[in-house]
Nucleic acid binder design. Sequence first.
DNA 1: GTCTATATTTGGATAGAC
DNA 2: GTCTATCCAAATATAGAC
Lengths: 225, 225
Amino acid sequence: MLGDLQRDRRSERREATRDEIVAAAWELCRPEGLGALSLRDLAKRVGMQAPSLYSYFDSKHAIYDAMYADGARAFVAAQGEMVLSGDSLHDLKAVARFFIGFCTEDPVRYQLLFQRVIPGFEPSPESFAISVASLREMQEHFASIGLTDPEAVDLYTALGTGLADQQISNDPGGDRWIRLVDEAMEMLHAHLVRRAESKRGGVNRTSPGGRQAADGRSRRTRKQR
Amino acid sequence: MLGDLQRDRRSERREATRDEIVAAAWELCRPEGLGALSLRDLAKRVGMQAPSLYSYFDSKHAIYDAMYADGARAFVAAQGEMVLSGDSLHDLKAVARFFIGFCTEDPVRYQLLFQRVIPGFEPSPESFAISVASLREMQEHFASIGLTDPEAVDLYTALGTGLADQQISNDPGGDRWIRLVDEAMEMLHAHLVRRAESKRGGVNRTSPGGRQAADGRSRRTRKQR
DNA sequence: GTCTATATTTGGATAGAC
DNA sequence: GTCTATCCAAATATAGAC
């Protein structure tokens, strides 16, 4: 039992150091992008010699992978903060604001999670599983407001990533596209209502207070932003 | 005069080789992204030794810059192929299809032109000027169909890049988002019409055959996708 | 677990013969 | 303009003392 306690303290310490390294890696990448990460610089920043990092990570890619998992977990956490009302337009806006906010508040994280920029790197199955779960959760949100049509969801994700991407690329730190989020969602909502009227099935016309049954189970498991 | 002729032949040859190098660089980047370019590999691919490249380019960044200029020129050329009718919805679709087609047909080019992925690289003023000119041309297209409101243009670019980006990241080689272009543009058009009705000024409700005076000179010169 | 020392590889870039 | 030879710097990664 005493052995157990010791092992616990040790692995806690170890975890803390790993987290410290990952945090330092983010900071190191912030100014110049993910490609600018080097083990020497990283070690210096946490007060180690470069080889010592190998006590914590097997390779540089393993560090990227830990960063990926970290970013994905941040996404899940932020997603948990969202409060949905059941009103489709309101919730469309809420989810979009959340997504664009998450992307723009840390462009490097966005780069790692959503773009393939490191030659040869892809997240491990374990890290990837985190983001898959969060995307499933997002699809459940969509379903809860009656948004089950795959094409409608695709339209939504295109709008969301487009706004985020333009904001990051062309007005970093500003709000030129962020402030268009509500208008964009109103546009989409109106379109989906019209679409539903002609096709039957789509978003709720008006949100009847209560939540709609999540009748449409998500149809795709494919990775999607 | 004879001297002139000789110099001409020589510089033509030189230009041809430069082009050959740039073309090889594109191919080399295609599989793994821009970060995977190395001078040794590049030289090997064109049948040279690495140092010989320095007869043609001063540095690796100079090669990226030539690639950038090449990509921007391709954009201009493709843009020239577009035929616009003066009908706002039709032209909205045409421009969007052009843009998404251009982006998705060569994701690495998209990466170089529209994303900052190489640590420390930015295009030279001369190369950048090419893309600035093409963006001005695009804004004139917008103005010609009465799309002069900056926010409307921003909404348009967000939609365009979002569709392109999702297509590249989540369905490379497919058409899952490409096939949504027309619907997206109809959505945008309807929105702008409604917007115009309440605000006065926006897109033409219906396209009166002839072109509308490009009254609204583009209000921003800022770089924009 | 951290260090020093070093291996190894691979970059980009230069010098100088031809 | 192209080559060989080489430099130099930086990178990842390993070995082994402490």
